[in-house]
Protein backbone atom coordinates (compact mmCIF):
# COMPACT_ATOMS: atom_id res chain seq x y z
CA UNK A 1 0.00 0.00 0.00
CA UNK A 2 1.52 3.25 -1.04
CA UNK A 3 1.41 6.60 0.73
CA UNK A 4 -0.61 9.32 -0.96
CA UNK A 5 0.93 12.77 -1.29
CA UNK A 6 -1.41 15.71 -1.99
CA UNK A 7 0.16 18.42 -4.14
CA UNK A 8 -0.95 22.09 -3.93
CA UNK A 9 -1.81 23.92 -7.15
CA UNK A 10 1.42 26.02 -7.33
CA UNK A 11 3.55 22.84 -7.50
CA UNK A 12 1.50 20.86 -10.00
CA UNK A 13 3.57 22.10 -12.92
CA UNK A 14 6.25 19.76 -11.52
CA UNK A 15 3.94 16.72 -11.18
CA UNK A 16 2.39 16.74 -14.65
CA UNK A 17 -0.66 18.50 -13.18
CA UNK A 18 -1.46 15.66 -10.79
CA UNK A 19 -3.02 16.76 -7.51
CA UNK A 20 -2.20 13.42 -5.87
CA UNK A 21 0.85 11.24 -6.36
CA UNK A 22 1.86 7.95 -4.76
CA UNK A 23 5.07 7.12 -2.91
CA UNK A 24 5.91 3.40 -2.57
CA UNK A 25 8.77 2.97 -0.11
CA UNK A 26 8.93 5.67 2.54
CA UNK A 27 9.44 5.04 6.25
CA UNK A 28 9.67 8.76 7.04
CA UNK A 29 8.61 12.10 5.59
CA UNK A 30 12.24 12.64 4.57
CA UNK A 31 12.18 9.35 2.58
CA UNK A 32 8.94 10.38 0.93
CA UNK A 33 10.44 13.69 -0.19
CA UNK A 34 13.54 11.92 -1.55
CA UNK A 35 11.41 9.52 -3.57
CA UNK A 36 9.18 12.34 -4.79
CA UNK A 37 12.20 14.28 -5.89
CA UNK A 38 13.49 11.34 -7.94
CA UNK A 39 10.14 11.08 -9.71
CA UNK A 40 9.53 14.82 -10.00
CA UNK A 41 12.83 16.73 -10.18
CA UNK A 42 12.74 20.14 -8.53
CA UNK A 43 9.99 19.35 -6.07
CA UNK A 44 12.28 18.93 -3.06
CA UNK A 45 14.00 22.28 -3.68
CA UNK A 46 10.64 24.02 -3.45
CA UNK A 47 9.95 22.44 -0.08
CA UNK A 48 13.37 22.35 1.61
CA UNK A 49 15.98 25.09 1.95
CA UNK A 50 19.68 24.72 1.15
CA UNK A 51 20.29 23.27 4.63
CA UNK A 52 17.66 20.61 4.06
CA UNK A 53 15.12 22.11 6.49
CA UNK A 54 11.45 22.61 5.64
CA UNK A 55 11.03 26.11 4.19
CA UNK A 56 9.38 28.57 6.59
CA UNK A 57 6.40 29.12 4.33
CA UNK A 58 5.60 25.45 3.68
CA UNK A 59 3.58 23.20 5.98
CA UNK A 60 3.49 19.40 5.77
CA UNK A 61 0.72 17.39 7.35
CA UNK A 62 0.77 13.62 8.02
CA UNK A 63 -2.94 12.95 7.90
CA UNK A 64 -4.17 15.88 10.06
CA UNK A 65 -1.00 16.38 12.06
CA UNK A 66 1.45 19.21 11.30
CA UNK A 67 4.88 17.53 11.20
CA UNK A 68 6.43 20.63 12.84
CA UNK A 69 4.48 19.75 15.97
CA UNK A 70 5.91 16.22 15.87
CA UNK A 71 9.29 14.92 14.73
CA UNK A 72 9.56 17.10 11.64
CA UNK A 73 11.07 15.41 8.58
CA UNK A 74 11.85 12.35 10.75
CA UNK A 75 8.11 11.78 11.30
CA UNK A 76 7.40 8.15 10.46
CA UNK A 77 4.92 7.11 7.81
CA UNK A 78 2.80 3.99 7.68
CA UNK A 79 0.91 2.36 4.84
CA UNK A 80 -2.17 4.27 3.88
CA UNK A 81 -0.99 7.56 5.42
CA UNK A 82 -1.74 10.74 3.57
CA UNK A 83 0.93 13.44 3.33
CA UNK A 84 -0.39 16.91 2.42
CA UNK A 85 1.75 19.83 1.28
CA UNK A 86 -0.01 23.08 2.25
CA UNK A 87 1.30 26.56 1.50
CA UNK A 88 1.69 28.30 4.88
CA UNK A 89 -0.08 31.32 3.46
CA UNK A 90 -3.26 31.64 1.51
CA UNK A 91 -1.56 33.68 -1.23
CA UNK A 92 -3.21 36.02 -3.68
CA UNK A 93 -4.97 38.99 -2.26
Amino acid sequence: MPITVKIPAPLRSLTANQSEVAVENAATVQDALEELSRKYPGLKDRLLDEKGALRRYVNLFRNDEDIRHGRGLATSLAEGDKLTIVPAIAGGC
Partner: peptide
Protein backbone atom coordinates in the same frame (compact mmCIF):
# COMPACT_ATOMS: atom_id res chain seq x y z
CA UNK B 1 -6.33 25.32 0.82
CA UNK B 2 -4.44 23.24 -1.79
CA UNK B 3 -6.04 25.33 -4.54
CA UNK B 4 -4.78 28.58 -2.89
CA UNK B 5 -6.40 31.91 -3.79
CA UNK B 6 -7.36 30.77 -7.30
CA UNK B 7 -9.49 28.06 -5.65
CA UNK B 8 -11.31 30.78 -3.69
Amino acid sequence: PLETSDGA
